[in-house]
Simulated assay, not measured.
Amino acid sequence: MDNTAPYKATLEATLTELQTRLSRIERDLDEPHDPDSSERAVQMEDDDSLEAQARLVSREIASTRQALGRIASGEYGQCVQCGEEISEGRLNARPEAALCITCAQKG
Rank of each mutant, 00 (worst) to 15 (best):
M1N: 11
N3V: 12
T4M: 03
A5L: 15
A5Q: 15
P6Q: 01
P6I: 00
P6E: 00
Y7V: 00
Y7D: 00
K8F: 09
K8D: 11
K8Q: 14
L11C: 13
L11S: 13
E12P: 11
E12V: 12
T14V: 07
L15V: 04
T16S: 07
T16A: 12
E17Q: 04
E17H: 04
Q19A: 01
R21D: 01
L22Y: 09
S23L: 05
R24A: 00
I25K: 11
E26W: 05
L29G: 02
D30K: 03
H33Y: 09
R40G: 08
A41F: 05
V42M: 11
E45Y: 08
D48K: 04
A54F: 13
A54C: 14
R55H: 14
V57N: 00
S58P: 13
R59F: 14
E60Q: 15
I61D: 01
A62R: 12
S63G: 04
T64H: 11
T64W: 12
R65W: 00
R65G: 01
A67R: 02
L68H: 01
L68Y: 06
R70G: 01
R70H: 06
I71D: 06
I71W: 09
G74E: 07
Y76K: 08
Y76L: 05
G77K: 03
Q78F: 13
V80G: 02
Q81T: 12
G83A: 02
G83H: 04
E84G: 08
E85T: 10
E85F: 06
I86F: 03
S87E: 13
S87Y: 10
S87W: 11
R90D: 08
R90F: 11
L91T: 07
L91I: 07
N92W: 06
A93P: 15
R94N: 01
R94D: 00
E96N: 10
A97P: 06
A98T: 12
C100Y: 14
I101E: 06
T102C: 02
T102Q: 10
C103R: 14
